[in-house]
Design a binder for these strands. Structure first.
Lengths: 356, 356
DNA sequence: ATGAAAGCGCTAACAT
DNA sequence: ATGTTAGCGCTTTCAT
């Protein structure tokens, strides 16, 4: 096992108190003693255990991070941002992933609480209705949400509704009228809802009828035949797809290509997230970009401000911090042409069906 | 602060010992008492602190993970694998990233040692010559490397040399003769070296002259003009590129496309890593695939076997565990045609210059 | 300047 | 079945 302060004390021939002082308040000990103690520390390769310190009621300098998955680079990017600041400020991160599973979320929070983390940075499916967050509030454990779009809880995100609104407006500005929103299986997430809201508003503002989000299985190797049919056949097929995230957009693009559609000639695609990876695609993916890394950084700063009690923003300010989004125009969006738009909107009469 | 076992004891009207037993050996306490204690635990929302337990010399059930970055999905995938098993087996992960920086590597190891992690899973630039690893050996801290390709230390990886060899042979089988290897700025890493070795062997076996790896700045937005020139001009320009990782391959592909080259018509591309993302590209990226997630899982299992002393494989077995790689053929590789191969090899005479 | 001792939260050996 | 107590590594009074 690791040597303890006792071993050092014995080795140096002083008491453990002196060793402790040599470490924590070097100026209070005799230089000669100090030197001897330091030699012993080196000789034994001693590192003070944070356990003892923490037990003494000191800060654990431990922050818990709970993410749905790292397979989506969005979260990996956030984590990078957090890690950068944490490391620089001498904090440790304890990471758990949940795969959006409620049991695992609960377990993660329990575990991290046990470890006396000073705070939590996390992303959940739906922040508004999440019972565990209420529990955290009750227990007084500080936390900051990332990406969750809620006005009720401390969070850092983009304005998902507005961001989606801007994105869909861009599609409309390119002449698209039959625009469909695609969402992952987690359409119930707060941000997916907000994004659909923005989509619907942009559509309505342009006098178009929004459609419900079409759910697409993210992890499937192929696009479901029913989905593919929905996207490609019929006179009212969409000319543009607004995908609720970039990974989904990439999966959809592959599915469409396999169905012999050309992008953007036969279908325009807009993603959401702004993954750097998207720019490497061919054609480069247009996307509504969130500053993921910066969201992680901002979440860290907010949490730390609360944890250390240096939160000047407390009180009047809203618990939500909204970071600016941006639009990345990409070659996956084409201006609409009569060739694609094989069934012009004005030729249709029914006001009931979307796009009709 | 969190309630302690004392608070519970007081609340329930029993001694702390009884509370401890109620938690750790419920069958040894009177059912009525047990019930009361449990009520108090719930009422106070008490969670036993692992600090006390750890202090008692029990296992910390804490494992440190040190990764270069999470921006490369390779590592995020490994981490997913580790996290999955760790969570299932009741272990906690403490994560630190280093950006391949030696200072940060040192700092990470120090920090994790202080926290009394039971072991370390990590990826470093060059395992053979890494002084910190020798230190770990000396300190008796158990660790397992991921992806590092060394016979000297406990590690889990693919056979990078053989994998690269197989990949380059595939290029050769498609008729390519002027094949260049591209590496990131970290060409000094042990795996990059092994991969170049495999490349060179495949070339030589086919009677071709290997070239030194061409270094490409990974993070740059554009391919350096000198690199681009190297790749595109002259009669001896390569017809295929073996990229030492998928991210690099994607960056290169973008650079080539911007230079108006078509892939694979004008240049074939082979990556390394087998990122799922690569299949979503257009054209889908051919790659030498490593089972990243499985590498993480295997590293976990090996570490845990060593940590818990249930390591049946110890002793005679090599410290290296080699997992099988696979080739993912993709549309980024074209069979060579005289159109592309504007300077047939057999027309050339010099044996000195690569590809000549 | 240094040491002795208490106490942080917990478990386990021992006592009742 | 339950309580008492020592001790894990450390910091911090309080003595010396």
């Amino acid at each position: 096992m690791s040597p303890t302060i006792k071993d050092v004390a014995a080795h140096a021939g002083f008491s453990i108190a002196t060793v402790s002082r040599a470490i924590n308040a070097p100026h209070t000990v005799n230089p000669v003693t100090l030197d001897k103690v330091r030699q012993s520390i080196d000789a034994l390769n001693f590192r003070p255990s944070p356990l003892g310190r923490q037990l003494r009621g000191e800060r654990t300098r431990l922050i818990g991070v709970i993410l749905p998955t790292l397979a989506n680079p969005v979260f990996a990017e956030c984590l990078q941002g957090i890690d950068e600041l944490a490391a620089a400020q001498g904090y440790r991160l304890m990471l758990m992933t949940t795969q959006y599973d409620a049991d695992r979320e609960r377990h993660a929070i329990e575990t991290l609480r046990e470890h006396r983390v000073e705070g939590l940075i996390l992303t959940v499916a739906d922040a508004d209705t999440h019972p565990l967050l209420d529990e955290l509030d009750r227990a007084g454990l500080l936390y900051v949400l990332m990406h969750n779009d809620t006005a009720r809880r401390p969070s850092v995100s983009v304005d998902n509704r507005l961001a989606a609104f801007d994105g869909v407006r861009m599609l409309i500005a390119h002449g698209h009228r039959r625009i469909l929103m695609l969402a992952g299986t987690l359409a119930a997430s707060d941000r997916a809802r907000q994004r659909h809201l923005g989509y619907a508003q942009a559509m309505q503002q342009a006098g178009l009828t929004p459609a419900p989000a079409l759910e697409v299985d993210f992890n499937a190797d192929e696009l479901a035949p029913s989905v593919l049919a929905h996207l490609t056949s019929g006179p009212n097929r969409p000319t543009a797809l607004f995908c609720s995230n970039d990974l989904l957009a990439m999966v959809v693009m592959r599915g469409l290509r396999r169905a012999r559609l050309q992008i953007p000639r036969d279908m325009s695609i807009l993603g959401f997230d702004g993954l750097p990876m998207g720019e490497l695609l061919s054609p480069p993916l247009a996307s509504v970009c969130a500053p993921n890394r910066e969201i992680g950084c901002a979440a860290w700063r907010r949490l730390l401000a609360r944890v250390t009690g240096t939160d000047e923003t407390s009180g009047e300010t809203s618990p939500t911090l909204t970071l600016p989004h941006s639009l990345r125009e990409g070659a996956t969006i084409a201006a609409i042409s009569s060739r694609t738009d094989n069934s012009p909107v004005r030729a249709s009469t029914s006001a009931e069906r979307p796009f009709a």
